[in-house]
């Protein structure tokens, strides 16, 4: 019984979706840059700028991939990002000595939120949409109510995360790359990863196979919250100080779900992976950059983005056998 869950192969191969999507995105970006004469965007600096557009959403989406793979979902990430950014700048107050305590406190807070989300979903049996919508509202409310006393700015040294680079490669990209590799490794090569696929693909089967499904769901939620925390810390470094609306204004909740699903991860859980999610994030980044170069009207952009989200998912979803809701 335990053998068939040890190494689950995704039914839809993860890589082709990711490669196709990434290829299309890069092609779109290159063509737009050439057509509009913005060839400077194809230089090293331009490409680094494009990839930097991926970092915040990419970090959130990596975490979202974990919860979606396990058959859950997390809408509280947007509020959590705001909370972390505000908390980090409040604790640091520009003092480099407070960097480590602030980071630890923020990640600790994220772990608690992830634990609460996970516990309510896994042990309370409450629908994850409602749980995370609720916790998101709670965090957002407390944050907005106490923002007046939670002001401050991160330390200059901390902003290196967002603005520093080595050999022309921004640290933030290295951070995203490292965490992506780590997430990919965990999902593909570890027992925990195998369990995530097993629980998402067939919870009853996983339980019969002796997996404590509740624990796996809870852990996935903690992973998602920690990744949201990483995104919040990155944004705090980039924006110097957090405001209680950066998560909501960035629509990181719905966008992280959208890119994950565009990347081929199935909402029901059990199929998908990190590569696809990153390709989805790259698509969104190239759309942002490309629409800028084309000078597309802000409202029209929204229309196009809506249509592209549907089309991008439809391309691989249409082959699904059976029903989706």
């Amino acid at each position: 019984m335990t053998t068939n869950i040890a190494k689950p192969k995704p039914a839809i191969p993860d890589l082709p979706v990711a490669v196709l999507l990434a290829g299309l995105s890069i092609g779109f970006f290159a063509v737009v840059a050439l057509v509009t004469g913005e060839t400077a965007q194809l230089s090293g600096e331009g490409i680094a700028g494009l990839l930097q557009r991926m970092v915040a959403l990419g970090l959130v989406a990596l975490g979202q991939t974990f919860v979606i793979l396990v058959g859950s979902i997390d809408l509280s990430v947007a509020a959590l990002i705001s909370a972390v950014a505000v908390l980090a700048s409040h604790v640091m107050q520009g003092d480099p000595a407070m960097m480590l305590p602030a980071v630890l406190l923020c990640l600790g807070f994220c772990a608690v939120v992830g634990f609460v989300n996970g516990a309510l979903v896994a042990y309370g049996g409450i629908n994850p949409l409602i749980v995370t919508l609720g916790t998101g509202l709670i965090i957002q409310g407390v944050l907005a109510a106490s923002f007046g006393v939670l002001q401050g700015a991160v330390a200059r040294e901390f902003q290196v995360i967002a603005y520093g680079s080595v050999l022309g490669v921004p640290y933030s990209l290295l951070l995203l790359a490292t965490l992506s590799l780590a997430a990919g490794f965990v999902l593909d090569r570890t027992l925990f990863g195998a369990r995530i696929y097993a629980v998402g693909g067939n919870p009853d089967g996983a339980r019969l196979a002796g997996i404590r499904t509740e624990r796996v769901i809870l852990s996935a939620h903690m992973v998602a919250s920690l990744f949201a925390g990483a995104a919040g810390l990155y944004l705090a470094a980039r924006l110097q100080s957090g405001t209680p609306w950066i998560g909501r204004d960035g629509i990181y909740d719905l966008e992280s779900i959208a890119v994950t699903v565009i990347g081929g991860t199935i909402l029901a859980g059990g199929k998908g992976g990190v590569a696809g999610t990153l390709a989805g994030v790259l698509l969104f980044a190239t759309l942002d950059a490309g629409f800028n170069m084309l000078g597309i009207d802000a409202f029209l952009k929204q229309v196009l983005r809506g249509a592209i989200v549907i089309a991008a998912v439809a391309v691989h979803a249409v082959r699904t056998k059976g029903h989706v809701a």
Binding site: I257, V309, I310, V313, V324
Partner: peptide, 27 residues
């Protein structure tokens, strides 16, 4: 139609139409 025939989960489909319809209204 998108949900039933293109098999796109409704949460994504209607997220897409939300953006699309909102954009249309504003444009």
């Amino acid at each position: 139609f998108v949900v039933a025939f293109l098999k796109v989960p409704s949460i994504i489909t209607t997220l897409g139409t939300m953006l699309l319809v909102n954009g249309l209204a504003l444009a």
